[in-house]
Design a binder for these strands. Structure first.
Lengths: 196, 196
DNA sequence: CTCCTTCTGGAGGTGTTTCTCTAGAACTCT
DNA sequence: AGAGTTCTAGAGAAACACCTCCAGAAGGAG
């Protein structure tokens, strides 16, 4: 009922993410977002209460998408799937360069202090991934010589760090980054060539 | 000759870095910077042509300071000093939390596209550190089983990544981060316990 | 067809930020 | 002391961004 929407809310988020990837948080002006998808200035406020809500939506959608893929890739975690998740992160960033920039910038870049309460409430969940990682890492620590902290780092922050340089230089991560992740994770989790 | 300056240019940069660490790039308003050191609004323009110049100065001074300390710590690079430089990065971030936030945010957060030409010219130099790292890593590759890429990563990006989580959570990196860096670098560069 | 709802389009109001400009203060050099 | 220079202090112009608001378009329900 009512006039059909011309633009999907996701269209606005897409445009905002794209603008962010190009020019940083400052260039995510609501007028610029609306203009870049051919919508009128005021039309945006039917979907997002204010600028903070749009920034919140950018971050929440992006981190949720990443986390969803990450968990799917991890499956029921064992040593193999843990090693495989590293290269997967690199590939995800290559396939979603703009969203990868959002993740790289980190939550702080999106001013969570200004978010509306319901958006902030949605933030408590994503931190669960760290808890899960620590749990998984503890279980795996028995089958490797690495500490749980080292395993957890290798599973998430290591591949992200490797992608970082490529993204900051404005190019997509490629084979070199995949190789680097694979090599380092093997070295940290116990080189397979050691355990033939 | 002339009236003595009441504020050092560095005072403005200090205030800007502090504001950035607290509230992100958006809260670095020239008026806020001036106010936070008790200077008049217009007084800032005798030192920085515009906002972009101040942002450029923030980034350039911070990265130069870090690089200077880093090179000093590295000295004439050998396996020992390379391993020691990792924990040093963590400690530098703990001792300079606001500047560490600047480094973490990355060049992109400071809108280098808007910088004046002379500031952009100063950017070509810092990238030399990557070249140097590759050179050092190549030399060291002979005495370890790691590839040059892995060594270069372990020397700079690894400790930075480890500090990242602590900084984003708003706390200073501590012993835990130092231990993690030490452990991982040992594992990557060849565990000393392996080569007794 | 008429009412109701939802959305569009775009004109501004409001507030903030950047930047300019000028009078004059503080200091040095001759 | 006088001249010249550098900086301060702060008012305010100009630009920009956020947000409001409302007339009307586009559909569904009775």
């Amino acid at each position: 009922m009512g006039r059909p929407a011309k633009h999907d809310p996701d269209d606005f988020i897409d445009a905002a993410v794209e603008l962010f990837a190009r020019g940083g948080a400052r260039s995510v002006a609501l007028s610029a977002v609306a203009a870049s998808i051919g919508a009128a200035n005021g039309s945006i406020y039917h979907r997002f209460a204010d600028r903070a809500s749009l920034l919140a939506a950018m971050w929440l959608r992006t981190s949720a998408r990443f986390e969803r893929g990450y968990r799917g890739q991890l499956g029921e975690p064992n040593l193999e799937s843990v090693v495989a998740v590293g290269p997967w992160v690199v590939e995800w960033c290559r396939d979603h360069p703009a969203e990868a920039q959002v993740l790289q910038a980190g939550l702080r870049a999106f001013g969570p202090d200004d978010w509306p309460p319901e958006a902030r409430a949605a933030l408590t969940t994503p931190d669960d991934i760290r808890r899960d990682l620590r749990r998984i890492a503890k279980r795996l620590a028995a089958s490797t010589s690495a500490t749980p902290d080292e395993i957890a780092f290798a599973m998430l922050e290591l591949p992200i760090a490797i992608v970082r340089r490529a993204l900051h230089a404005g190019r997509a991560p490629g084979k070199r980054e995949v190789d680097l992740v694979r090599g380092l994770m093997a070295r940290i989790l116990g080189d397979p060539s050691d355990r033939t």
